[in-house]
Computed example of a mutant assay.
Amino acid sequence: MNTLKIDLPERMKATWVTRYGGPEAIQIVDVPLPAVKPGMVLVRVAASAVNSGDVRTRGLQAKEPVKTLMRLVLGLHRPRQPILATVFSGTVAALGAGVTSFRVGDAVFGSSPGMRYGCHAQYVAIPASGPMACMTPSMGFAEAAALPFGGNTALYFLEKHGAKAGESILINGAAGAVGTMAVQIARNLGLGVTGTAGGKNEALVRGLGAHRFIDYTRDCIFAPGIRFDLILDTVGKLDKAQAKEALKPGGRFINTCGSDVAKENHRQVERLAQWYDAGKLKAVIHSILPMDDVQGAHRIVDTGHKWGSVVLMIRQEEGQ
């Protein structure tokens, strides 16, 4: 039996990918609310974000043979899950049987695990044991939605590859959604951070905690004699052989755009919330758009040159 605080509607608004293609392939539709099964939490979504994974899925953006593999996994002619987005912030609207870790009315944020997507909608069902946590009082809905994609990705890869205090790291794409989180998290973990981005983003990257900045449009990323313990490529554009030559003995090269997909969990989201509340993690937001302008949000991400996150307000009145 679900525990409900208010009566729920039978249908909701959601973005819907009608086919693989450009942003024009996305429409706003009315669909039934997701079922609240045992162990699940129904979240009334206030904000989400459009990230690189969303545009890659929408546009089937990959070269062969990866593109064919994507069709087999995602769907032949359109995504099997046509409601995209993996991040959300909002309030708990209903609880499935057996859920005791959250209460109706809690302000929460996090990710839909795996390939569930579904967050570009007025309601989304999330496993109570999944990558979700309560928002801190200092968080707004827009800020909370901007944290999980980059934050969980950066934290997963840094932890997996044993990043530790005193080591040096080069972060390529330091101004993007993942890069801006990686700079801050690496700094919080005690690493010496070098960030690469276009020169116009130097103040942003340094302000987030980078000790050194490289303008990739002007300078060589890999300078003779400079070596790193870790190189984190958040945009998948570094030459792997060159990167490995720039590593110290025992160094690790990490490509967040490769075959290894970040696995989010509750502990990661809790840690992001703690850092945010302590003033050690900032939400970096490029723009905030209403749900009705989801096509515009996708166009911004499609450029490949936005900084931070593009937030989509699902419920405008909750994001003020």
Rank of each mutant, 00 (worst) to 15 (best):
H161S: 03
A210K: 02
R218M: 05
I169V: 02
K160F: 07
G207Q: 10
L238T: 15
P137K: 09
T256N: 10
L208G: 00
T256I: 12
K237P: 05
G192R: 11
L170T: 00
A182M: 03
G236D: 02
K240S: 11
K164A: 13
A163R: 02
G179L: 12
I169D: 10
I226K: 09
R252E: 15
P137R: 05
F228V: 13
A174V: 01
V193F: 14
D229G: 00
Q184T: 12
D219F: 11
D229T: 03
A145I: 07
L204V: 07
G162P: 04
R187V: 01
G195A: 08
G179T: 01
N201I: 09
Y216E: 04
A165M: 13
Q184G: 08
K248C: 06
F222Y: 01
M139I: 13
G199R: 02
R252L: 12
N188A: 10
N172T: 00
F213D: 02
G166R: 08
P137Q: 09
P148D: 02
G198M: 09
A197N: 05
Q184D: 04
V183L: 06
N188M: 00
Q242S: 09
F141Q: 11
N172H: 03
I221W: 07
F213M: 09
A182K: 15
E245L: 13
L208I: 11
A163D: 02
A145G: 10
G195F: 00
N172E: 01
L147I: 04
E245P: 13
L147A: 10
E167W: 14
S259F: 15
G225S: 12
M181D: 03
